[in-house]
């Protein structure tokens, strides 16, 4: 185990594919920059696998002091086994104080295994990270009980302190072309990387659409939409906003939209700039998945619907009247 006194610097694991860095990795660099600046530490962006080197300059521009790369062909594409082995080697070599991973499906698979391997603490799906300078600890805030409780989690003794950062819980830092940093290459060719699970095929569903968790605007439909073909009204609004389409559990359970669209406790958690709930009553399970959105717009026939209690703006009315009008108005406004 790595002790507190030996550990320094904030690491971010960079998730990348095809030369593109995941949004949440950039958001994490922004968070790490703030933590590092308040505690005189460095931000290290750790990029593994083929293509890592090429990301260096851009990662420095958004806030990394050091980009640590390991361009090993065995790390092409995510699998938790080889990534855990590689990171365990790097972490024990360089001894970071904290390691932040995006709370993506891959990050959420990797971080717990890595925590158990290193016998250190992990705070999952954090929505806020601060540095307690007096104690020298990462202070991680994470929702529990469907967002009804915020827990502040600390890992006071063991290092590195692991955290997964919820997608879109922090702004993306603006690139600064004048920022300086260095790229450090790690040679892990002698490190044994286990690889027990094989990815045979990756299928992108809903190709071309904006990803639900990444969208700035999410338009969701619920029971009030009334049927699968009627979701075209919701889809048209989502497209006009260049946003993503979501659904309540009721709509998914009815088979109107696939599960991948479900927002709520048993579906996805989203935190867009604007969440437009159409014909969604606002059961607590649904609210758990969207109530941290910046602005919530509710459109519902029933003025007593609980969704109006969390809505920033509420419109009582027939969604089949209001939503098409809204689509037209937004098209005009952005034309």
């Amino acid at each position: 185990m790595i002790g507190k006194a030996d550990a320094r610097n904030i690491w971010i694991l960079i998730e990348h594919r095809g030369g593109k860095v995941a949004g949440v990795s950039l958001e994490a660099i922004g968070v790490a920059r703030k933590l590092a600046d308040s505690s005189s530490q460095e931000v290290w962006a750790v990029a593994l696998g083929p293509g890592a080197q090429a990301l260096g300059a851009d990662l420095i521009k958004v806030g990394a002091d050091v980009v640590l790369t390991a361009e090993d062909a065995r790390l092409d594409g995510f699998r938790d086994d080889p990534y855990t082995d590689a990171l365990t080697h790097l972490v024990t070599t360089y001894k970071p104080s904290a390691l932040i991973v995006g709370a993506t499906s891959n990050g959420k698979s990797l971080a717990p295994r890595l925590a158990s391997r290193l016998r250190t603490g992990l705070a999952s799906e954090c929505v806020d990270l601060e540095w307690d300078a007096a104690a020298g600890n990462l202070v991680a805030v994470r929702p529990m009980y469907g967002g009804n409780v915020l827990a502040t989690v600390v890992c006071p003794e063991v290092r590195p302190q692991l955290a997964t950062l919820r997608v879109k819980s922090a702004p993306r830092p603006e690139p600064d072309p004048a920022r300086k940093g260095r790229v450090e290459k790690a040679d892990i060719s002698g490190v044994e990387l286990r690889d027990r699970v094989k990815v045979l095929e990756a299928v992108e569903t809903g190709g071309g659409e904006v990803k639900l968790e990444e969208a700035d605007i999410v338009v969701s439909g619920g029971r009030g939409v009334g049927g699968p073909e009627k979701f075209s009204v919701i889809k048209a609004l989502a497209e006009a906003c260049r946003g993503a389409m979501g659904a309540s559990r009721a709509a998914v359970d009815a088979g109107w939209l696939p599960y991948a669209h479900q927002v709520g406790q048993t579906g996805k958690t989203v935190s867009p700039k604007v969440y437009i709930a159409c014909g969604i009553s606002g059961a607590i399970q649904h609210l758990a998945g969207m109530k941290s959105s910046d602005i919530i717009v509710a459109i519902n026939k029933n003025p007593e619907a609980p969704i109006f209690k969390v809505a920033t703006y509420g419109i009582v009315g027939d969604l089949f009247e209001v939503v098409p009008l809204l689509t037209e108005e937004i098209k005009e406004a952005s034309a």
Binding site: S105, N106, K198, V199, A202, T205, G206
Partner: peptide, 13 residues
């Protein structure tokens, strides 16, 4: 296995 943009087919022992 569900991923963030779809799913992948995975095998193992």
């Amino acid at each position: 296995r569900m991923t963030d943009d779809g799913y992948e087919v995975v095998e193992g022992p």
